[in-house]
Amino acid sequence: MENLLDIRNLKISFDSERSRTDAVKGISFCVGEDEAVAVVGESGSGKSVTAMSLTRLLPPPPLCRVGGKIIYRGADVAEMSESELRKIRGREIAYIFQEPSTSLNPVFTVGYQIAEAVKLHFPENKNPRKTVVEALKEVGIRNAEARYDSYPHELSGGMQQRVMIAMALACRPRLLIADEPTTALDVTIQKQIIELLLQIRKSRRMSLLLITHNFGIISELCTRVIVMFRGKIVEHGPVDEVLHNPQNPYTKALIACIPRLGMREKKLEPIDYSKLGEV
C-alpha cells in the first residue's frame, strides 16, 4: 500500500533576531490511505507546527525554516508552487483547530465560510448552498438550513467545532488533520466530537491525523500512535501496544496521566522531568 503522506527527517526551526527555536528536530513517520494516526505529546513538543508544515502554512523563511522531506501522494510539498498547494489545502488535506471560537471569522455567516471552500474547490458545483447544508447535517447540526445564516457567536463552542468539521468535510479531503479538536471544549462535548469523528471515519474513506496531548481519546479513534517530546519522536507503534506496554519513560508518564474510572482516589502525579533524563 502506498502511503498517502510520508514525512522523512522533518526539521522545523523558528528564527527571531535574538533566538532560534528548534521546534521539530528530525522526525519521520507516515500516514496510509484510510488510516488514523495519533500524535501525542505535551504542550510545546512541536505537534502543531508539524501539522502546519504539511501544507506549508508556517511563516515563510527566514522566520521559519523547514527541512527534510514531506511527500504527499508521491509529490514533494516543498517543491509545489503556491497555486498547486492551494489545490491541496482544504481539498486534499483539511484542518480543524483547537479553538473553534477564534478559528471562525466573526463577521461572516458559518454558511458563507463553508461555501467559500466549496466554491473554491468545486467551481462547477451549481448549488453550493445545498452541499453546505448537507455537510452541516452530516456533522449533526439540527436545523441546518437555518444555521447556514448564523454567525459564529450565535453558536456554542461544540456547535462551532462541528461547523469547523463540516467545513473540512465539505470538500471531501483525503486527509483530515485534527489539531486538538476537543481541548477547548467541555468534557461532555468532547465525547460528542470524538463520537462524531468516529462516525465520520466509519462512513467515508478518509485518513486522520489526530493531534492531542490526551492519551485518553486516541484508543477509540486511532490505530497507530506517535509520541513526541521536545521536537522528537520518542515512541511509535500500534495504539494498543504503546498503551499497554510503553517503552519510553516519557510515554509511561503520559499514560499515567490518563484519568480512569475507579482511579479517583489516586492523585494524578505530575511528570517529574528530572527522572526522565535526556530523551
Binding site: L57, K87, R89, G90, Y95, F97, L104, N105, A117, L120
Partner: peptide
C-alpha cells in the same frame, strides 16, 4: 485564528486579505 483557517482551506492571499481580514 480565522486567518489560519482561511489559508488552510486554500483561499488565495488576496481573498484572505481583502475579504476576511478587511471586513474585520
Amino acid at each position: 485564528g480565522y486567518v489560519r483557517t482561511a489559508r488552510a482551506k486554500g483561499l488565495p492571499p488576496g481573498k484572505v486579505y481583502f475579504v476576511h481580514i478587511f471586513k474585520n
